Computed example of a mutant assay.
Amino acid sequence: MTTHYRHQIYTALFTLLLLSAGVQKSFGQREVMNEQYVQNPMAINPGFTGVRETFNMTAVLRRKWFSIPNSPLSQTFAADGTFGEGKFGVGFQALNDQTSYFTTTALSASFAYHLGISDTWKLGLGAQGGINVLPISNGTSFANNRALGSFGLGAWLRSDQFYLGVSKPEILKHGFGDQALSYFYRRPLYIMAGGSYDLNEDVMLLPHVLIVQEKDQDLRVDLGARFWFNEKIGLGASYRMGGGAKTGGTGINFLQFTAEVQVGKNIRLGYFYSTKQIEQIYSTNSGPKGIHELMLKFVPNPNGFQKY
């Protein structure tokens, strides 16, 4: 990697961090979508848009009770691809969340430019924008829905075996009527790193770490790994720790278990179970603490096994 390209990387990442640090108030109403960052890194980093260099579609169904008809559920959908010989990535994401304390509908589009900085390293610089529709209090109820703009930035540096992402998916500041939603809705800074390593001909290890920084909150750290066997079956687990208000509030520590199966070349199915759900920081309602998720991933024209 030449000195010129190193300078480009450092400048881009430093600029992104400056933009992120300029935000003074927390906001981030898409917790459900953001929690799926392992299966869809584009959810927290627009710089990932088009990294896989082929068209991808991912749909996730999230539900507390599968045995109770008409119980609350959430759906997310994400798609991205490239054009211009892989130099440009475009993506789309949609969320309809009914499981959270604050129901949310969100639509966003992302764009990334991918710079080849050496034979083995590439840098993706991305931006995303869209709208989030959520209930806003009028002082007595949550009867009014309001569409709020969304804008974010991200950078994704990668090689065949390693990646590093820095992003701020929400940087706009909004008001929320007569309620203190800004206390709950924060605009976090995400730093994510990971890679892929062949343990032998049949087993691949994909570790990852995510560090989340929010104003007036303790650092949150997610540690996890997935194992793929013969590129057919994937099993993994991750652990979240930290978070919570620096003034004495507690974060939510929990485990997530994942199971995936590659069905042919085009389809991947997944089941994920979290022992707790992120929305518990908003409510102490009784009921199941864990939450189930089902995933369908479709790649019309795969260019090989997709690690991420």
Rank of each mutant, 00 (worst) to 15 (best):
Q217F: 00
T258Q: 08
L235A: 09
F298S: 04
H208Y: 15
M192N: 15
R186L: 02
A245R: 08
R187E: 10
E214F: 01
M241R: 07
L294P: 02
N303D: 08
P300Q: 11
I211Y: 11
E279V: 13
F298G: 05
P300T: 09
I278E: 15
E260K: 04
G243S: 09
Y190D: 05
M241K: 06
Y282S: 13
E260H: 07
G242E: 03
H208A: 07
H292W: 13
L189D: 04
L235W: 01
T284L: 08
D198W: 08
V263S: 06
T250I: 08
Q280K: 14
Y197T: 14
W228A: 02
A259D: 03
K246V: 11
K297P: 08
L206G: 01
L210Y: 00
Q217A: 00
L269K: 02
G195S: 14
D222Y: 02
L294D: 01
G236P: 10
T284S: 14
E201D: 15
T284P: 08
L206T: 12
I211P: 03
E260V: 01
G244N: 10
G264P: 13
A225E: 02
I211C: 04
S196H: 11
S196L: 07
A193I: 11
Y282A: 14
F298D: 04
N230L: 00
Q213P: 00
V221G: 00
I233P: 06
P188T: 06
N266E: 13
T284I: 05
Y239H: 03
Y183G: 04
M192A: 14
G224E: 03
I233N: 06
G242Y: 04
N301Q: 08
D218G: 03
P300K: 08
G248A: 03
M241F: 14
G270R: 10
L199K: 06
Y273K: 10
D222E: 04
K246Q: 12
G224M: 02
Q256D: 14
Y271F: 15
F254Q: 15
T284E: 12
Q213D: 08
